[in-house]
Design a protein around this nucleic acid. Structure first.
Lengths: 147, 147
DNA sequence: TCATATCCGACGAAATCACTCGGATATCGA
DNA sequence: TCGATATCCGAGTGATTTCGTCGGATATGA
């Protein structure tokens, strides 16, 4: 579903197409895409020749946004969630010193997720000769040939 | 269970004690501690006045080790696991460009986890005046008063 | 020898995950 | 206007994982 970023600019792609490419059940994708739409990441056009399209260019969509749309707020534990709305303290919170750890982990995750956009995951035409920068919290265009 | 680091040097602590302090069921802790023992993080002495003790000083036990012992290899997805032993490629791995992302996330998590030791989570006597360093992959002694 | 522990294995309930089903509604092309 | 092709919607299922239980065997100190 994420790789309909590859389709960006070519008009809407139907779930049937995507299902074929990714070989995943169409009905399942339907479920997922609801969240993406509610998250404002994709737009839909109904009817014949309809389908889904990215709402914005792929370079402007961070993977954190995608993941949040698909799986809710990013939180290793309920007591260390991304979204202040859903912040539910566990009853143990009074004498729990572990919270700091989870916040750290969460920040590390969101950092990694924010550092990549959809565009980074769209397979590049020509695998660039640019060596992958090891640790850098800025956009990257690395060698993306999957193992 | 992690906070039996606080008890370090005072001889073994029984599960009954820990269960009372943490109010968690004793039988459950029993389950957990098995993994910690197999991971070589705690030692046990049986019989009356027995219990569990850290195998090493808390400063030398990273949270990554604890988590690995408790929950297995660190991996956001099965295709991006810590432990080369359990590396199971998903059938989609041929045309899956998302792997890089998970590896990134995993590294971020292990980084965060490696940067903290058990000692960091043991409530300090005097909350140090040292300001918490925002992003630094080295040991830290921060203010740990839980919210 | 008895109370206090750890050890061990299996079991059970609840939540989550990946996925399905059936049908209503919108839109394009002929 | 009709029909094929889509999205939309919401409830439901089956497998796996997570959290926790239970009963009893074994070791050890007083």
């Amino acid at each position: 579903m994420v790789q309909l970023g590859r389709h960006y600019g070519k008009g809407p792609a139907s779930l049937a197409e995507i299902a074929a490419e990714e070989d995943l059940p169409r009905a399942y994708l339907e479920q997922l895409v609801v969240n993406l739409r509610e998250g404002g990441l994709v737009t839909s056009t109904r009817g014949a020749h309809g389908g889904y399209e990215l709402a914005r260019p792929p370079e402007t969509i961070s993977m954190a946004q995608v993941l949040r749309a698909l799986e809710g707020p990013i939180a290793p534990m309920m007591c260390a969630t991304d979204d202040p709305e859903h912040a539910t303290l566990c009853d143990r919170s009074s004498h729990c010193t572990v919270n700091v750890l989870w916040v750290r982990v969460r920040d590390a995750v969101t950092g990694a997720l924010d550092s990549m956009t959809l565009a980074d995951l769209v397979p590049p035409r020509i695998p660039a000769a640019t060596p992958a920068s090891p640790i850098q919290p800025t956009p990257l265009q690395g060698a993306l040939t999957t193992p």
